[in-house]
Structures are given as structure tokens and as C-alpha cells.
Write a protein that binds this DNA or RNA. Sequence first.
DNA 1: TTCACTGCAAAACGTTTGCAAACAG
DNA 2: CTGTTTGCAAACGTTTTGCAGTGAA
Lengths: 121, 121
Amino acid sequence: MTKQRELILQILTHSDRHLTADEVFFLAKLQMPSIAMATVYNNLNAMTDAGFINRVHVDGSADCFEKGSDPHDHLRCTSCGKLANVSLPWLKDRLRQAVGTDISGYDLTIHYICPECRKKI
Amino acid sequence: MTKQRELILQILTHSDRHLTADEVFFLAKLQMPSIAMATVYNNLNAMTDAGFINRVHVDGSADCFEKGSDPHDHLRCTSCGKLANVSLPWLKDRLRQAVGTDISGYDLTIHYICPECRKKI
DNA sequence: TTCACTGCAAAACGTTTGCAAACAG
DNA sequence: CTGTTTGCAAACGTTTTGCAGTGAA
């Protein structure tokens, strides 16, 4: 557990948003100007592999990272692009049932208009 | 409707698999050696926008394309990476219900071990 | 003292762009 | 004719790599 890894983990823990590697890099650089992008990616990958954090694919832009809490899925606003979490505990069993064989997991992103964007229209 | 577009559409129509842009390019090049990668992408994007074909994101590798039939979701084998289609007509309504607001759509990829790989183990 | 991790630069990857020439309608 | 599309090459953004040097244990 290096200072760099600690810093990156702290940034993700204290963020209320999902962050791209670039955003993590920017925020990390504020506190540790010598940090390198490769180090950010190394650590994000290591922590993702270790299950500490989640990597979230975002269509048409860079992947996002978040501190992993309970398993959950994502809502993505088609207007502003912001991600939100949603918990669908029934879904995995329901999918297993529908598919007929055992499944190891799934990736789901639901597209919607978030409450803030809905107001603006 | 240029010859290039026709060729690309034909390749996708006659393929029983989901193809990456690279694979489409390779197959197209067999029949039309002068074709360029950019042309393949131009046409895949144009046909995707027009709704003729579907672009499928594959975690950790290049996007795949398929001739669009009815709306469906994807199964991805965690062992060999192959994609299969699955129809879950009840899902969108069920997600709408769970989320509480209207949703415009969703992306779902289910992870499993395909029948062929299951046999091998 | 050891070995994993860092920072850097450069490469890899999938994809898009700018442009002049070619072509379809 | 006119506008769209092609082929090419070069650029793009994101992510990974190779490597010498650093720092944690």
C-alpha cells in the first residue's frame, strides 16, 4: 500500500461522483504533483482486480471508477451523461431463470433522463 | 448506396457471428482489396445511426456489429468471448417499474459459460 | 536487501478526421 | 452537374507497456 494507492483510493472514497481515470489523475496531481498517469492506471487496475473498486464502461467516453459498495447497476442520463447507482437485487436470479443456465454475472446500464435534466426541459 | 456499403451489409447479413470492424474489414478486403478501414467505419457508423445494424460494446476489446433484427440482449461467454443473442421482452417494463421513472432503453450483457465451453471443462 | 511500485516516454489500440480524387444519383 | 463517399494518412483519446530508478517492508 503505497502513498499513491492510498491517495487514489481516498479520492474515490470521498467522491460523490463516478470518476474517469483522467479525473482521478487530475485530483491526485493536486495533492501529489509528481504522480504519473501510468501509476493511476496501474492502481485503478490493481484495485479493480482486487475488487476494491469498480470499473464502469461508459459508451462513447472513458471508463469510470467508483469505490465498490454493494453490487448495483447504473443509470446513465442521456442528456448530461451523469451516472447514478440503482440496486436491483432480484435481477440476477431473474436473468438466470430466463437464460436457463447458470450465469456468472451481467453488466447493465439503463438509459434515462435524470431528475435535474428533466426539470430543465 | 455504394458498392462498399452493400458489401459491408452483405457481410454482416451472411455472418452467423458478431463481427468486429476489423473482421468486417478483413472480409471486405477479400472481395474488394482497395477498401479502406475508414470506409468500413464510416459505413458501420452510418448504418448504425440509420438503425440497420447494431453496435455491441464488448468489455476489454473492440466493439462488434450485427445485422439488427428484433431488439435483444447479449450473452458473452467468459471463456471464449463469443457473443450470443437472447430475447428478454419483459425486461424493459420490469426495469421501468423498478427505476420509477421512464427509461429510454438499456444495455445488458450477461456473462456465462457457453454450451461448447461447458462441454470442454 | 529485496521486490513491488513509481515516473517517464513511447507504443498500442480502436476509432475518427481532413482532404483531394472518384463516384452515384 | 452536385453532393456524397471513397481511400489514404495522419491524428485522436484512452489505456498499456518497457525500463531504469525509488521506496516500502
